[in-house]
Every structure is written in C-alpha cells, then in structure tokens.
C-alpha cells in the first residue's frame, strides 16, 4: 500500500494538521508520501520532510497552486494520486473543498472526516452531528479520505529525513481565480490547534462582552471561540464558531461560558481533555459533559476567574 497525504499549509509554514493526517496514514500502514502544492512553498516541503514516518515529499511549486484553488489542486492531486492506494487530507476548509473534486475525477467515493482507522478499507466517522458513529467500508480501488485532525495524535515534527522531489506538473483548470482575502486578525492561537479554548454563548449578551473572554484568553494563551447561538445572534463572526457546523476542537482545556450545550455545540468540543462550564442555569446540558461546573452569573464569575488566574499564573 502507498498513501499520499496532501499537506495543509499557507506557503510559508506547514500546518500541524498535516502531522495528524500523517498519523492517520500510519494507522492505515504503508509508504507515506506527502504532496506539498503551493507557491514559493520550499520551506513547507523542508518541514514536511522532517516529519516522522514520511517516505518522500513531492513539491508542486507554481503560481497556479498559490491560493489553493480547488479546481487546479484537484487536477494535480488526481493525477499524482492515481498511483496510490489512499489519498488523505485534513478535513479543514481546504481539504473539504478540493478532495471531493478529486474523488469525483477518479470516480471513487470519498470517506469524510474519519476519526478512526479500523483497517485499510474500513473507517469510523461521525454522522448526524456526532450523534451517531458509523463504521464504513470502501470498495473503491483508491480511497479518498479526509481526516478529522483532532482525532489523531500528531507524529513528531522532527526526526525524519525524507527525500524532496520537485514535480513539474502545472494544472490550470481556467475556471476560477483568486480575488482577495480577509484574514481574521488575531495574535491568539488558531482555534483548531490551540491547547486552551474559551468560548462564549448566547449568555454573553453581545459582542462587546467577549472582551472579558479575550482577557482570560490572553492570560492562558488560549483561543476564543463561540457557540452557534452567539454567531447567529451576530455577537461574533462565524470563523469563531465551535460545533458541528463550525470548527471541531479538542484542546487540553475547554472553557464554556454562557453556553447551554446544544447537541451541535457538543459535537464540536466534547473530545476536549478537560471541560469547564460556567452557566447560571443549573439544568444546562453543558454540565452533563463538564469535568468542572460552576453555577454562577458569568458577569461576576469571569472577572473573578481573571483575577484568580493572575494570582496563580
């Protein structure tokens, strides 16, 4: 068996999710090659070559891949990937965009968002917003798979010494072009990879009150998230959403503030190692998954929490 892992990166650095996907590839077994497609992405390829368990790094460095347009990436991945038994990518917004396109081009099904590998053709994945867990078997010759990064412990970032090979394959589908982007400006860690996350819900009452959470986040080096209810109410942007329809997180510490614990939110955070819930409603379902629950008015508890943290940190 041979597995092609598509690296997730921003042209300058390799995203940690790639190391989680390599771990999933190791669980399947076989030679693991990593494809880095981007523009001026040499440094990414070098990082990928150091990752544990990687056999070879293939680099497609060209302007047509610079913005990760699905139409161009899919043509490249389908051509390179047809010689492999498995093609894997992280189930982030990039992988979710181009991978089904790859699968369709190869006329195979895709197995989305796997959380466990049972065997080379059998995988476990959540369905119905994590309310059910399905074990599925693929009968296709090439398995196209997206991996939920938080479900696999990453391989070591250092220690490997894979060969790096440049690919001279330029695929411009001519269907799409990049117009612009708006990055969420933040000095805080990325929500999906942060080791501590503090999230607010509808109980926050408005976007201004999220500043309270930001102050705590800065003390803990945490990312700030939100429930779908807080996003729908317009308090904060959608890229902060934790839940089945937003980001799936599994930090060491997850602090839910003013979040009732709707099923769709729990699906996005219940794999966290330690969960803290602060809510004034004693009956809130969030307390059923919380390791530590504090029944209190968040507008009193959060400033106190900030003061107490300052004492011990």
């Amino acid at each position: 068996m041979s597995i092609l892992v598509i690296a997730e990166h921003d042209n300058s650095s390799l995203k940690q999710a790639t190391l989680n996907v390599v771990a999933a590839a190791k669980a399947i077994g076989g030679d693991i090659d990593v494809l880095v497609a981007g523009e001026n992405c040499g440094a990414v390829a070098e990082s990928a070559a150091k990752a544990e368990g990687v056999n070879k790094v293939l680099v497609a460095d060209n302007a047509v891949y610079g913005h990760f347009l699905a139409e161009n990436l899919a043509e490249l991945v389908a051509e390179v990937g047809k010689n492999y038994s498995h093609i894997l990518a992280a189930a982030g917004t990039t992988g979710k965009d181009f991978m089904p396109r790859v699968a369709a081009m190869l006329d195979v099904a895709q197995v989305s968002d796997i959380i466990r590998v049972e065997s080379e053709d059998t995988f476990v994945r959540p369905i119905y917003a994590g309310n059910a867990i399905a074990t599925v078997k693929s009968s296709d010759s090439i398995k196209v798979i997206t991996v939920r990064p938080t479900a696999f412990d990453p391989v070591a970032a250092e220690g490997g010494s894979a060969a790096v090979e440049a690919l001279d394959i330029v695929k411009d589908a001519g269907l799409s072009s990049f117009v612009g982007e708006q990055k969420a400006e933040s000095d805080r860690p990325d929500l999906a990879s942060a080791s501590v996350v503090i999230s607010g819900g509808r109980g926050m009452q408005n976007g201004e009150n999220f500043k309270m959470l930001e102050r705590v986040a800065d003390l803990l080096g945490a990312a700030v998230g939100a429930s779908r209810a807080a996003v729908d109410a317009g308090f904060v942007p959608n890229d902060m959403q934790v839940g089945q329809t937003g980001k799936i997180v599994a930090p060491q510490l997850y602090i839910a503030v003013g979040i009732s614990g709707a099923i769709q939110h729990l699906a996005g955070m219940s794999d966290s190692k330690v969960i803290v819930a602060i809510n004034k409603d004693e009956e809130a379902p969030i307390f059923q998954v919380a390791d530590y629950g504090l029944v209190a008015d968040l507008f009193e508890a959060v400033p106190q929490f900030e003061e107490e943290l300052k004492k011990v940190l």
């Binding site: 195979v108 059910a132 074990t135 599925v136 969960i275 998954v289 919380a290 390791d291 530590y292």
Partner: peptide
C-alpha cells in the same frame, strides 16, 4: 460504493 457496517451511539462523557 461505501457499505455501512454498523452505526453506534457515541460513548457518553461522564459528568464531573
């Protein structure tokens, strides 16, 4: 192309 072998309820998390 995909066969569902089984569907299970997720493992419940213990309340603390």
């Amino acid at each position: 192309r995909l066969t569902t072998l089984k569907v299970e309820a997720p493992a419940p998390r213990q309340a603390g």
